[in-house]
């Protein structure tokens, strides 16, 4: 137990930030915002994934959620979920950088809606553009070695294989 606690305190660096926790946690599919908040606190994670969605006219959608996340003081990793092309993903990433004040982006370009397999061609294209624009790109990719190499060649320092 003591050994595990010591290991947990070892700092590591990812995407230009120094962390002690090695776990990232998603913020979706919790039964309520309160359960999400409790889970994030209990896990002691330092990185939480978030997203952007169309906001309904005359509504305050998202404000409550984003207020909770801000108050937790964690790093956020926005994603481009729901995108099916490099162009869409680039636009969402640019919006996310401004809204969430981070250059981190979990690049997701879906190639198959049934199993959510990423589209490697569009993902690599988007990664090239986003890296040039100063993003730290965390691409959601397949376990294909050639695609992985192309993402690294594009300037990605991190890969997030699906599975």
């Amino acid at each position: 137990m003591t050994k595990m606690m010591q290991t947990d305190q070892i700092e590591w660096e990812i995407g230009g930030k120094r962390l002690t926790s090695r776990m990232f946690i998603g913020s979706a599919l919790y039964p309520s915002p309160a359960v999400m908040e409790d889970a994030i606190r209990a896990s002691q994670v330092q990185v939480v994934t978030v997203s952007l969605r169309r906001q309904g006219v005359n509504k305050e959608a998202g404000e409550g959620f984003w207020k909770i996340i801000r108050e937790l003081g964690v790093e956020v990793l926005p994603n481009t979920a729901g995108c099916h092309s490099a162009k869409e993903a680039i636009t969402i990433a640019q919006m996310a950088r401004e809204v969430f004040s981070t250059n981190w982006i979990k690049l997701e370009v879906i190639g198959d809606q049934y199993n959510l397999q990423p589209d490697p061609y569009e993902t690599v294209e988007a990664a090239k553009v986003l890296v040039k624009e100063g993003f730290e790109v965390f691409p959601y990719t397949t376990d294909d070695l050639v695609v992985a190499k192309k993402l690294v060649d594009a300037g990605c320092n991190i890969l997030m294989p699906w599975g």
Binding site: T49, V50, S51, L52, F65, W66, N79, V99
Partner: peptide
């Protein structure tokens, strides 16, 4: 026009 706001995501 697309207007997007923060939401939960995985």
């Amino acid at each position: 026009v697309d207007v997007l706001a923060p939401v939960s995501g995985g």
